[in-house]
Structures are given as structure tokens and as C-alpha cells.
Design a binder for these strands. Structure first.
Length: 111
DNA sequence: CGCGTGACGTCTC
DNA sequence: CGAGACGCCACGC
């Protein structure tokens, strides 16, 4: 089945555990293209929330989250806080502590 | 069917 | 070390 880039992104994002966050570039790199961070964002932008995709766990490389217009005013930060994500005084996520570290076992099997 | 835009990141000068 | 250009995918017009 020809899976679109978004489908692969969704599958990987779904593996992200609560309390941890991942970056666009990280997902793209895991897919094999570290320069496809924008593609990840494009896919998540149209990600079907009905598919239970924790798109709110994806933040940028600096730990800043997407504009409030995307999810809502302070919604993403509230969701992350509810999961136990640690925030820094400047309002960004503490990547040093909450960055998702995927193990080989958590990654999809290699065809 | 083609161009421009957008939740980004890496590479090059 | 800083700024600029390119790359990737999906969607709207």
C-alpha cells in the first residue's frame, strides 16, 4: 500500500509516549530525510484528529510550539502540561528532559 | 494542471 | 559566527 508521507508521520507520532515531545526534524530524520521537517508540519497540519494523533506533542527544534491559532489559545501547552511535560521560564518546553528518545524497538520494523 | 504558501530544519556562503 | 537559499510534502486557488 502506498502510504503517503503523512501516514508514516502519523504512525511515528503515535509512538510518542505522554510526557515526552518530539521535533519535526526528529520525525523527518527518523523517516530518512532530515530536511523534510516542513513536510512533517504540512502532514500534521492536516492530521485527522479522529485518528488519535497526538499532534500536540510535536514542537519545533527550540521547544516552542505552534501558533495558538492552530490548536487554540494555550491549548497545546495545557495538553502538554497535563501529560507532565516540563516547561522552562521562557515558556518553551525543556527539551533536555522531555525530548522523546525513541528506541530501536519502538521504531517500525525495517522492511 | 501549475504556482504559491506553510505547525521547519539543514546546508552553504 | 551570522544570514541566506534550498529541500520536503500537502493544500488552496
Amino acid at each position: 500500500m502506498s502510504r503517503t508521507y503523512g501516514q508514516r508521520v502519523y504512525a511515528l507520532v503515535r509512538r510518542g509516549p505522554p510526557g515526552s515531545v518530539a521535533t519535526y526534524g526528529q520525525i523527518a530524520a527518523l523517516l530518512g530525510n532530515p530536511r523534510a521537517a516542513r513536510a512533517v508540519a504540512a502532514a500534521l497540519r492536516n492530521a485527522p484528529n479522529g485518528g488519535r494523533i497526538p499532534c500536540h506533542r510535536i514542537v519545533n527544534r527550540r521547544g516552542s510550539m505552534a501558533p495558538a491559532d492552530v490548536f487554540g489559545p494555550g491549548v497545546q501547552s495545557a495538553l502538554l502540561r497535563g501529560e507532565g511535560v516540563v516547561f522552562l521560564p521562557d515558556g518553551s518546553v525543556d527539551m533536555r528532559r522531555c525530548l522523546w528518545q525513541p528506541q530501536p524497538s519502538d521504531l517500525p520494523a525495517q522492511p
